[in-house]
């Protein structure tokens, strides 16, 4: 509960749709600079949690407090969608990729830096006349985009329309684009879905580097246990909208509640271990 070490405090959050409680009285702390995974069976409320964090849904009850190093405590559930990224610097990706398919990869990354450009361009006026201040801002935006594209091994694809690229590449572009917003908290919704084992291993590497080298806190929804167990510092398990367990990967693997939720009542803990083993 210590605000200094947690970037995000989810407090007694509930999200109801009619009679259905997609999230039911959930409290969760996301430690700063670490990778936190949210796992759980289908329909456990994981994506709903993300939707509550990023202004998609207004939670029925509860609050989501972001401890911003410069801007103090921000209540995410009260911010409009665009302020979640702009002011709170919380960015998310989607389970089904949402790039701008008709734009080039580079343009996708430049759009994400729109606010900096807009300020430099005095709302497009200077942009129209290509004043030096705007050209500098544009060069900076370009540099940042190129930097991330290079680091994610995407630079050759910079001028290709994003929609024409293979699935695994699009996933990486989506992460690169999110990084261009300068996130302090990056929420990834199943980033490993549809990736082959090699791509998935690269993703593990990337996530660990982002947390370790850039100090970006990561909140991760993932079904692929080889990713979750490898990269997570902290795991939170949801089932039917409630938190049923929380702890380190080792603790979670041995938690009877988790095994029950995933595999049913029978003592099938060996199966979970089999799935989890690298």
């Amino acid at each position: 509960m210590n605000g200094v070490h947690n970037i995000l405090n989810v407090e007694r959050l509930s999200m109801r749709f009619g009679g259905l409680a997609a999230i039911d009285d959930l409290s969760l702390d996301v430690p700063v600079g670490k990778i936190t995974a949210v796992i759980g069976p289908n329909g456990a409320g994981k994506t709903t949690l993300f939707n509550c964090l990023t202004g998609f849904y207004k939670p029925t009850v509860g609050s989501v407090r972001l401890n911003h190093p410069q801007r103090g405590t921000l209540l995410l559930e009260t911010l409009p969608s665009h302020q979640v990224a702009h002011k709170a610097q919380v960015v998310r990706t989607f389970q089904n990729i949402r790039l701008f398919p008709k734009m080039t990869v580079l343009e996708n990354l430049i759009v994400a830096q729109h606010n900096a450009l807009q300020q430099a361009s005095f709302f497009t006026l200077a942009g129209l006349f290509a004043l030096p201040s705007y050209r500098r801002a544009e060069a900076a935006a370009m540099e940042k985009a190129v930097n991330w594209l290079t680091r994610l091994g995407l630079i050759e694809k910079a001028d290709t329309a994003a929609g024409d690229l293979p699935y695994g590449t699009q996933r990486r572009i989506e992460i690169a684009r999110a990084l261009c917003v300068d996130p302090i908290l990056l929420c990834l919704d199943e980033p490993a879905a549809g990736l082959n084992p090699r791509e998935s291993a690269e993703l593990n590497e990337l996530l660990m580097r982002l947390a370790r080298d850039e100090g970006i806190s990561i909140l991760l929804i993932e079904h692929d246990m080889s990713v979750v167990m490898k990269v997570s510092d902290h795991i939170c398990v949801l089932n039917y909208g409630r938190k049923i367990a929380e702890g380190t990967p080792q603790e979670i693997q041995n938690d009877p509640n988790v095994i029950k939720a995933y595999l049913g009542e029978e003592d099938a803990d060996e199966e979970l271990h089999a799935e989890v083993a690298p």
Partner: peptide
């Protein structure tokens, strides 16, 4: 939606 989530 995505545009808004990028801060625009």
């Amino acid at each position: 939606t995505m545009t808004a989530l990028l801060g625009i």
